[in-house]
Design a protein around this nucleic acid. Structure first.
Lengths: 354, 354
DNA sequence: GCTAGTCTCTGTATCGATACAGACTGAATC
DNA sequence: GATTCAGTCTGTATCGATACAGAGACTAGC
């Protein structure tokens, strides 16, 4: 058994408080005694104050949780998520705070427990799918958090960093619409919680529970409504999970239909790259005639010539962590909107005449 | 103030133990009482057992630390490190364990503290630079750990997962030597703790403190010794920090010398890609005539046509976490050597005649 | 009717530290 | 010589839970 503070105190013949002070408040005792104590501690093999006990007594932990409302493994697969993490890490580094990555089991009950058990001082919630339950747990625990999705029911003191999803998505769709495309597929991750992969019919975009996805799909719809293409005429495709293979699989059947889409608007670059993968496996005709857009502008998008919407990834993470670690006094400053930009590359072009 | 277990116990009129059992050991009380307790807890807004207090009492935390002996920000910049993390994450996910990423301040004293204060049950130490001090702290704390660098002074029960660095590096160097190269530069991160960027003279490879770097440089040297090129004839170049720009900057001056190297062997893909960046900024002649090899085989290496040594990144992370989370009974099984393979691409070719 | 055994629930000790009020000492001030 | 004060150190209460031994009540078995 490792010795405790008490053991060191006994060895030196001082009180426990004094040993504690030797570690945590050196100004509270003479330098000589402090040296004697640290020497004795070394000699006994005392590992230093127990971090858990310290946290309990002090009332804070010194680490923040990062929550991905999807399998943790996905987080490392999506370059955007990785850049986001890098941003959080940079801010954490500056504050001397650690980051706890909490994997969420698939079953909601277990996932709730995971969030309940996380020893952290607050959460950065990176929103992928439906995370309302996670926010509930965090609120219940009374912990502060920063979300990356704008939610209507957000309380006044709930912090947020993100983009105007709807306007950003609209810019991409307007570009595609401007190129003449009218038969269009919209591709998104987890449109509905338990929907299967592939085409999905919804009466309206308001049926999409996740605010980020809903925002992007709304933006897409806006731009097409403007050129006379209604929601019902757009093909909505669900992908369960934000990964290239999943997107490729979900979209595959679409191009064999009688009147296939001439453009695919994806809710993320990872999905869009999956679409390009699927197209690459098809005859050259398809490959060249279908326009594809993504969202995020990850490094791979540039390499693939993907038209996409750029949003600042690292900054998003950095700001999320900073909003969490030193909250602005002004509530309005707790709500940060980042700029986006449409990046046009080779993956979009005019509708081919056929 | 949030209510505690005691508050719930008082409200229901039972003992604290019983409330605790309602959460942690449902089989210890009747279903009816349990429901009553949980109801009361809901009503009072009790956030559930405090994770810190629970950890203290139970004696374990339920999370493992991942230590990068470099700025945490770098970890997200190196695709190999990201894949490693993904592997750790996958294993952690299966075990229901969280991952704590601990940023290390530049000053060693502060860094030691960071490791001392981390509330974790053990560490995966991803080795980049010198981390002997970190291992000391971990040993002092009596925590288990898994290292990715083979060290000579490792105790019998110290776990390890890695590759035969020397043999792997040798295979790359032998390939380059076989192509006829004799004027060669070796590029590595943090060859010596405080050495500046650029060429560095060492009397021998044994002067390199970090075991991984030493292993790789030894392997490079082995292959060239075999074709009659001694250590003194090789140009050793130090890069402070494992990043593309740092590598590009460190190597830049080399090609303006009278007899520039015809090949550069880098200790990692990130460094090698930096060398390619530097070459891309030079006249076509240089670009085409210098052979470059990397190490790791990150996805970007394939895209860049980089000849490199492949090692399984995710598996390394996964196995590291598994060795930590359920240690093999047999000590020998705690020492895992992964396979490597030389991947020849376009970045290496015969020495140009000039 | 008595002993055993099972279910529930309680009470006390404990995990390992930090906070805070106060005691003591010796020097400086008037 | 009394007062003040800074500098050190101690003692007790506390952070919020879980472990474990054991007390009662109740059912079974003989």
């Amino acid at each position: 058994m490792k010795p405790t503070l008490q053991a060191v105190a006994d060895a030196v013949g001082v009180s426990r408080s004094t040993v504690s002070n030797a570690y945590s408040r050196p100004d509270q005792l003479s330098a000589a005694l402090r040296e004697r104590i640290l020497d004795a501690a070394r000699q006994l093999g005392y590992p230093g104050p127990n971090p858990t006990a310290r946290s309990l007594r002090r009332g804070f932990v010194g680490s923040i949780g990062v929550l991905f409302t999807s399998q943790l493994s996905y987080a490392f697969t999506d370059p955007f998520a990785v850049r986001f993490l890098a941003g959080v890490g940079a801010a954490a580094e500056r504050h001397g705070t650690s980051m706890l990555l909490v994997p969420l089991p698939p079953a909601v009950t277990d996932a709730r427990q995971a969030v309940e058990n996380a020893a952290v001082d607050g959460f950065c919630v990176y929103c992928v799918a439906d995370e309302e339950w996670a926010l509930d747990v965090i609120r219940q625990r009374g912990l502060p958090f920063v979300s990356t999705a704008a939610r209507d029911d957000a309380g006044p003191d709930e912090r947020f960093v993100g983009i105007d999803e709807r306007a950003a998505a609209r810019s991409a769709a307007a570009h595609v619409a401007g190129l003449g495309h009218r038969r269009v597929a919209l591709l998104a991750d987890s449109v509905r919680p338990d929907a299967p992969a592939g085409p999905l019919t919804l009466t309206g975009v308001d049926q999409v529970p996740h605010p980020t996805t809903r925002g992007r799909l709304s933006g897409f719809a806006d731009a097409f409504a403007e050129v006379g293409v209604g929601w019902a005429e757009l093909t909505l495709v669900n992908v369960p999970g934000n990964s290239r293979p999943a997107a490729a699989a979900a979209i595959a059947g679409l191009f064999d239909q009688p009147a296939p889409p001439t453009a695919v608007l994806a809710g993320s670059d990872v999905l869009a790259l999956g679409v390009l993968d699927a197209l690459a496996a098809r005859p050259a005709h398809d490959r060249l005639s279908v326009s594809v857009t993504g969202f995020d502008d990850v490094p791979e998008a540039a390499a693939a010539g993907l038209t996409t919407v750029r949003q600042p990834a690292e900054e998003k993470g950095r700001i999320a962590a900073e909003l969490l670690l030193d909250p602005p006094a002004d509530a309005a400053a707790g709500h940060v909107l980042l700029p986006t930009a449409l990046v046009v590359r080779e993956s979009t072009g005019p509708v081919p005449r056929s």
